[in-house]
Design a binder for these strands. Structure first.
Lengths: 212, 212, 212, 212
DNA sequence: GATGAATGAGGATTCATTCAT
DNA sequence: AATGAATGAATCCTCATTCAT
């Protein structure tokens, strides 16, 4: 695993409580209404601070959208890298990543909605998520686990299917089983034999770390 | 093919000349700046009509976004169903669909950008595109061509990968070869054997109909 | 009676049906929403004609408001002068006028609402209504029936009380008995002895003419 | 007294300086052009604040019309209740009320025009004014001063005549003597004997309080 | 740092009016 | 006469941003 312990951000520490309140408020609102339809004064109100306080921490809405994206990615990374710690096999790592994303969307639809809405506005988020996936894909190809012609296409397969899967569960068109089903198709797309893919996606997920 | 709008059937009326101008203007602007960032007076200006004329045809921006979505879907359908006419094999049909989408995105990035931006705002578009894909998936499973546990997951695989692939070529991170590469991974995800998948996605596309 | 036979207008004759349709539509809408809140295209729609047709008959909204006022006054006059035909006593004439107005408001709240709304916009209406009232006041003073110092104040008494009474019944704060009650107070204000006033306002109204 | 706004009690706050400016501006404009014909940006300009500031205090034009109505009523109440303090006789109280309204209209036509225009838009105003009138009517009937069959009709007599009287002086069709003349007719309508009514409406008005 | 009133540019929407058919 | 699409000025309203406290 390339980025082993991102450790949830330093925001609990010295950095202002207000900044966190704004980020959380923005996340809720972005999830509910999208980035473009959320007014700055709404974020301030939801965070329980005055209108002008926003500008002590962020300069524009895109600014905070980026920060929200980074924050969402950090949550995810901490979740996934925790799951990863003991897993060396690239196929299993990819399967875990796919499943965790979709299961998390099921558990926390707000988070998922925010991811989906921020995804196309904040390049920071997409890039950050792509990084560990690419690392696993390369490792899997080197180790003979995966076969694919184009790395970009493989990344599209993984990210595209997972995002679509998240949307499916957010819209209540799929339940917990959707995570394994999607992961299985992804693995097969990367050339993992069918039977093996089915077995891998049924393995229990590594226990989540205490903090959740 | 630089002219995106194949002039889908019903657009012959006299009065609806203006309506078409508005739809085409909106398509260009949505592609360039997204739905939420396009002002209505911009659409009117781009269409060469007065500000208030917009409201003779549409009531809100979401309204015209839906109509644009329907229109884009119609263009696509006509393109794809034309390609399909002679093809019976479900695997080849799916491969054609995936490739046509991505190649079209390469040829007409405006169209593709519009699709990507409207996709999440207009349920009409997503539903309309899903329909023929589902038909092919079912036919392929019945015919033993495909294996998948969950239909929803299979749809996520196809749609998710193709949308991601479109974004990749629109952002110039992939060229013409990306279409076949993505289609190949999709077929393999649906359980088509690797060698066969590679062969299918290399078959020439059926000739486009005259109108194109 | 000063203006004996206004005979309901000539509008049924050669003048266009469309004009009447517009006037009736405007009356309904003015009654419902007031003059200022009624758009010209609404009047046209309510009349069942096209937008531009309005301008073949009227030039502005105030224009048609005036015409509506005149028309409402004509309806009234025909109603009242019919009632008057056989009545010579000024006190009884005033009592009839007050009662007819308020009873008419009860029977046709739309008409009354229109009167109330047009009253302050169309000087034509107020002047037209004032004329016969003044004639009766003068006749009554000459004949020793009424005593009042200021003609303007007497007119305010009659018109003000009747308009307020109309509003009262339109707002359902009064019923048929309200007409006689208000008329009685007006007569007393003009110095008709109490007992006599009470008797006068209980006399049956002259029969309405056939046309109504 | 040319300064209409006696600065009714509660208006001392710091922030509400702007609110008062808006209310005074609206009062002037409503008086001049009516509620419906006054644009919100006109109110803001007249108050000397920016366009959007209006919305920090009121949401709609009806909103501020209501507030203006309440404010006008407060001015009146303070004026009249001051005049009343020493007066016990219901007939004299009613006479004072009628005369003060009409005299005030003469002294401050802006205030009167605003009353007349707001009257039919703001139920708050009408209700507030009706209350003390009703109290006096009841007291007068109990004390044998007034005779009337219907309380609603009596209220219509008083309010209707006074409003019409205000309009008369605003339109310069009557002078200072109009106040007494109208009040006299009202008293007679309520059954006060003619000679007595004439005497009562000639009594000097109680001195206005300092603030006036 | 926090506040929140004030600002005013900008976008949405309505509607009176014209005019070619 | 009737039509009704097109027009664009005028108004409504929101909201990012500033700044004095």
């Amino acid at each position: 695993m390339s980025r082993p312990l991102a450790r949830v951000p330093a925001e609990g520490g010295i950095r202002s409580r207000t900044r966190v309140a704004l980020l959380e408020a923005a996340t809720r609102l972005f999830a509910r209404k999208g980035v473009g339809d959320t007014a700055i004064h709404e974020i301030a109100a939801e965070a329980g601070v005055a209108n002008g306080t926003f500008y002590n921490y962020f300069r524009t809405r895109e600014d905070i959208a980026d920060a929200v994206g980074v924050r969402l990615a950090e949550v995810l990374e901490s979740r996934i890298s925790a799951s990863y710690r003991e897993v060396a096999d690239a196929a299993e790592r990819v399967a875990i990543g796919c499943r965790v994303f979709i299961l998390q969307a099921l558990e926390d639809p707000d988070w998922a909605a925010a991811i989906l809405r921020v995804w196309s506005r904040s390049s920071a988020l997409a890039e950050r998520v792509a990084e560990p996936v690419l690392a696993d894909l390369r490792a899997g190809r080197l180790g003979g686990r995966f076969r694919y012609g184009s790395e970009a296409a493989a990344l599209d397969l993984v990210q595209g299917t997972v995002l679509a899967g998240m949307r499916t569960v957010v819209e209540a068109r799929g339940g917990a089983e959707h995570a394994a089903a999607a992961a299985c198709l992804v693995l097969r797309g990367l050339s993992v034999p069918v039977a093996e893919a089915e077995e891998i996606v049924r393995r229990p997920l590594p226990p989540r770390p205490r903090g959740g």
